[in-house]
């Protein structure tokens, strides 16, 4: 589903950051561990098409990212990648449900409320569907962002530090929610984190080395 090969990014001429090669298949899970400064964020932005690829090859769902134009990347991102962040962000003026259907329409897909409600039900926040995001607790908000990341059946779910702000119990819960939800949708799950607690929970992991 995703392969990363020979990718190197250079912000400043003298210290290029190179990333290890890895791949992750449909339904699989991969943990990318790295301390701060190891280029986690850069990798995330490269995979998400938010930063332009300078060297190497990233393929998602059979599409090579460097072949896509900026506007194609926007749509591609919406359709193939679901993102979960450390802090849950929403469009504040829309209800939880509308936030999720917004992800459908921004990805140029037909709005399917039933699909969105199914996901909310599975994540046990269906009763909060019509509330504004800021009326939800942080845990509920995190669930809602997972639902949003999955609504377009993305090829991969990209989670950026989803647990680092959570205590052990919540950390376990969010990770298993992510795992279950992603595997049910048949999406590859990529978690980028410095959170060492997650190391034991995943059999596949790549470690980024500070350079």
């Amino acid at each position: 589903m995703i392969t990363v090969q020979g990718v190197t990014h250079t912000y400043r001429e003298e210290d290029p950051i190179s990333f290890p090669d890895f791949s992750c298949d449909r339904g699989d899970q991969l943990l990318i561990l790295g301390a701060s400064g190891s280029g986690k964020t850069t990798l995330l932005n490269l995979i998400g098409g938010l930063l332009k690829l300078q060297k190497g090859q990233i393929t998602i769902g059979g599409k090579a990212l460097d072949k896509l134009s900026v506007s194609e990347l926007d749509t591609f991102r919406g359709q193939y990648i679901g993102m979960v962040f450390q802090k849950p962000h929403f469009v504040g003026s829309l209800s939880v449900l509308e936030n999720i259907t917004l992800a459908q329409s921004l990805a140029a897909k037909p709005v399917d409320k039933e699909r969105a409600m199914q996901l909310l039900t599975r994540l046990k926040i269906d009763k909060l569907a019509l509330k504004k995001p800021d009326q939800l607790s942080v845990g509920e908000q995190q669930r809602a962002t997972i639902a949003r990341a999955l609504v377009n059946k993305p090829a991969i779910v990209l989670a950026d530090e989803p647990t680092s702000a959570l205590d052990d119990i919540n950390c376990d819960e969010v990770v298993s929610l992510l795992e279950n939800a992603a595997s049910q949708e048949g999406s590859a799950l990529l978690i980028v984190t410095h959170d060492q607690r997650l190391k034991d929970k995943f059999k596949n992991f790549v470690e980024l080395t500070p350079q």
């Binding site: 749509t75 991102r77 993102m83 929403f90 504040g92 921004l106």
Partner: peptide
């Protein structure tokens, strides 16, 4: 305050 939601919309596919 809205820069997060705008960035979010970009992530979700808005140009």
């Amino acid at each position: 305050q809205r820069k997060y939601e705008l960035a979010l919309m970009r992530v979700m596919g808005a140009s």
